[in-house]
């Protein structure tokens, strides 16, 4: 499934849809809120589910080549994260569901 398809099907709010997201394949799901753990364990193509809606999370997503960030729990998002995401070409979505339910929802779509 591509990032674009996830954005369309998940029913999350899309805060930034990066260029090329119709060609960006999601390789799996990664959940974590600690940035230095995500930095090391986040993998290329991951849909990263987190509550860290700040600019540093956008930097981590970009440096690790994760496919998109899904902010769970309707977590607040810093305006600077959106601008960084735009600049770095990171798709950001916001889900009202808790982390586990958000990940399960994405998982269901990936396996559909």
């Amino acid at each position: 499934m591509t990032v674009n398809e996830l954005a369309e099907k998940a029913g999350f709010e899309t805060l930034n849809l990066a260029d090329g997201s119709d060609e960006r394949t999601i390789s799996g799901i990664y959940c974590c809120d600690l940035l230095s753990v995500a930095m090391s364990k986040g993998f290329p193509g991951a849909a990263w589910v987190t509550i860290m809606g700040n600019i540093n999370a956008a930097a981590v997503a970009s440096l690790t080549d994760m496919a998109c960030v899904v902010l769970a729990e309707g977590a607040a998002i810093d305006e600077m994260m959106v601008s960084k995401a735009k600049q770095q070409g990171i798709t950001v979505m916001q889900s009202p569901l808790p982390i586990f339910e958000t990940a399960m929802k994405i998982n269901g779509l990936l396996n559909a």
């Binding site: 940035l35 230095s36 090391s40 999370a57």
Partner: peptide
């Protein structure tokens, strides 16, 4: 509160 402080930075630097 910004997501830092796991105490994994230096270990990551050593590892990678």
């Amino acid at each position: 509160s910004l997501g830092f402080g796991a105490g994994m930075g230096l270990p990551n630097m050593k590892k990678y």
